[in-house]
Structure formats: structure tokens, C-alpha cells
Simulated scan of single mutants.
Amino acid sequence: MNLPATDASSHFPGLARVAALLADPGRAAMLWALMDGSARPAGELTMIAGLSPSAASGHLARLTEGGLLALDVRGRHRYYRVATPEVAATIEALMNVAHAANATSAQRPEPRSVRTVPLEMRHARTCYDHMAGEVAVQVFERLVGSGLLLRDGDTLEATPEGAARLATWGVDVAALRARRRRFACTCLDWSERRPHLGGALGAALLDSWTLSGWIERTNRPRVLRITPKGQGEFDALAGV
């Protein structure tokens, strides 16, 4: 068995390096603000994190050099975004770990931000580039329960019937499978404690449903609005 390289002072130094990047509250706040899949300028992230410009600049540089953020340069403007879907999935997974740890801790009270998840965010929100929240969990369960998706652990595959149904939503299953990104997978929802749909398929469905007018983005970060048309379509999934 091949094991990751170690040295005399640290086991799995890559893991420790990433953990150190995530450990700072200011850096964590900036990363969490980018979990809606957006790219934001340094000034906006500075205000979100409540840091001085010089401190924020140093943190952004560390996150970029560490591979957690990517820098987009558009003319004279510089925008930061989460580097990859895998980084986003890791951040979401750590939120689940934090939620579970706080829920079972007898030594300290659960943070207010975890106790009082806004209802709008719990109902429907983005998880990087796919949909999360109560509606997303229900849709995922209906897709699996109706046999449109087959689940094997955390991996999902579309059945022939599922591929045909997805095509009616403008999703080309063959094209998604050809991408380097994982086709479809489960993503544990930190507010519902049940999985929703992630991967390339989850992102494609969010794009499709947004274009179809089922879902609208709001002026609140990550919060999605389910339109009356979308609610009707999602309710109809229960009968497929």
C-alpha cells in the first residue's frame, strides 16, 4: 500500500496545511461567502469578514496560494472565487462536521448562527453551484425513489428513464458524463441532515430550473426563491 509522504515533524502535511488555512475565522468567513458560486472583489470580502484591508489582502493571498481560492482578473478588477467544486464540497462537509459537533457538545452552547438558520436559507439555497435546503432534499429523494436515479453509496447514476426525463429539462446526460467532473453524487445537507444532489448533474439542474423560471436568485447571498411554477413542478415529481 502506498502511503502519503510524511516527515519527522508532521504526518500528512498537506492535510495540516489546508486545515490551517481554514482555521482562521476571517478566512472561513470569506470562503463561506463565496459558497454561492459567485466571484467577489477583495473589498466586499473584506467587509464580510470584518477585517482591515491589509489583513484581508494577506488572507486572500494565503487562500489563493493554498489552492482554496482562484483569482479572476477582469481588466483592472480582481475577483476571488472558490477554486474548484472539490474545495466547495470540502467546505460544505466541514459545516456538517461543525454542526454535528456543536449539537453534541455538552461543554459549550451551540452558536446562534447554527441554532437559528434563516427559514429562507433552510428552504432553498445554493451549495456552491447546485441547490441545497429542504426543497433540494425532497427533490433528491423523489428522483431516487421514482427510479430516475440509482444510488450506490454516495455515487449516483441516471437510469434510461431518468436520462429521458432529464432531457425534458434540457440536461444532456451523455455530455455531463464526458466531463472530468464527477457526474452525480450525494452532498449531505447541513441544515436538513439528509443528502441533496451534487456533482455536474446537480449544477446542470440548478441552471436548467433557473432558466425555466422554476427558481429565482434573490438579493440575499445563497438564498433561492421557488416560484409558483417551480413549486408546481417540484410537487409533480412526487407522482412520477
Rank of each mutant, 00 (worst) to 15 (best):
174 A>F: 00
240 V>W: 15
236 A>I: 10
32 W>R: 12
63 L>D: 10
164 A>R: 11
215 I>Y: 03
8 A>G: 13
25 P>Q: 03
50 G>P: 09
130 H>L: 03
153 G>T: 00
20 A>G: 12
13 P>Q: 05
135 V>Q: 10
97 V>W: 10
102 N>C: 12
215 I>H: 01
179 R>L: 14
89 A>I: 00
180 R>F: 01
184 A>S: 02
133 G>D: 01
10 S>G: 04
215 I>P: 03
59 H>Q: 14
204 A>W: 06
23 A>K: 09
183 F>K: 06
41 P>N: 08
54 S>D: 13
85 P>G: 12
229 K>Y: 12
49 A>L: 01
169 W>G: 00
201 L>H: 01
163 A>E: 13
57 S>Y: 11
84 T>W: 02
218 T>K: 02
185 C>F: 03
114 V>C: 06
99 H>K: 14
50 G>V: 07
128 Y>C: 03
192 E>H: 01
77 H>D: 15
103 A>Y: 03
138 Q>T: 12
28 A>Y: 08
41 P>W: 04
224 L>Y: 08
204 A>K: 08
127 C>Q: 11
100 A>Y: 07
184 A>W: 07
184 A>Q: 05
142 R>G: 01
201 L>E: 02
175 A>P: 00
192 E>W: 02
208 S>F: 07
213 G>C: 06
20 A>M: 07
177 R>L: 13
6 T>E: 14
174 A>E: 09
113 S>D: 08
209 W>M: 04
43 G>T: 14
19 A>R: 12
116 T>W: 13
175 A>H: 04
165 R>I: 02
185 C>R: 15
236 A>F: 13
139 V>D: 01
22 L>P: 07
187 C>N: 09
45 L>C: 04
37 G>Q: 08
155 T>V: 13
95 M>E: 13
105 S>Q: 05
196 H>C: 11
113 S>K: 05
216 E>P: 00
133 G>V: 01
222 R>S: 15
156 L>K: 00
154 D>I: 03
154 D>M: 09
99 H>Y: 15
217 R>H: 13
135 V>L: 07
107 Q>I: 09
31 L>T: 04
212 S>F: 10
7 D>W: 13
210 T>Y: 07
1 M>N: 12
171 V>K: 05
208 S>H: 04
217 R>K: 13
212 S>D: 14
10 S>M: 11
74 R>S: 13
57 S>Q: 12
194 R>Q: 14
99 H>S: 14
83 A>E: 07
113 S>V: 13
102 N>E: 15
